[in-house]
Amino acid sequence: MSEENSHLDALQDIRRMMQRSTRFISLSGLSGIAAGVCALVGAWFAYDWIHEYYVGYGQAGYTNAAFDRLKFSLLILAAVVLATSLVSAFYFTWRKADKDKLPLWDHTARNLALNMAIPLVTGGLFILAMLQYDEWKFVAPACLIFYGLALVNGSKYTLSEIRYLGLLEIALGLLNTQFIGYGLYFWAVGFGVLHIIYGFAMWWKYERNPAAANVR
């Protein structure tokens, strides 16, 4: 009986080591929730400002100054949202790694970062090129699609469920191509709502009760 147990233990050890050495498992669900909340708050501000701009547009007509001001404030907003979501996502993941006594930056984190960076950097450059030609219609769908591709590509190097999040982002991006001009709503859903749902599901599955999750 004890011999059988020791064999089972050995097999479980093997499985755990294989998983732990190839996947970055410290990614916290709370990181997803935090990033999602940042995105939603950002979208709310953006909506408000754009609305205000159109009210002014209706009263005073088009002025270069008003449009430039809107463009500038949206750009700053985007940068702030990106920074806060990265910092908060990083914080919760760092906290989880620390609690599990796992290194935050090891070869699994490197693999994940590299494999996500390939589609992300490609997408970023592609979007910049579109803006270069004043082609703004596909900016929002392209963000969602390339981000989704990055998640699908990264899913081999972290919690595999992130693949589904990636597929949903891609689907949302493709759907957005048929509703040009509603990019902000699609962004709010893709970067806000989906992140929160995914983050909550992952937290529920892996972190709510640490003892139950044998994939440490």
Partner: peptide
């Protein structure tokens, strides 16, 4: 041995791995 088994498990799924990464993984 648990450590030797661990080393082999890790090497099965990684093309190559450094001494320090092994050390961290196996504690």
């Amino acid at each position: 041995n648990r450590i030797r088994l661990g080393v082999m498990s890790i090497l099965m799924v990684n093309d190559e791995i450094s001494f320090n990464d092994l050390k961290a993984l196996l504690e």
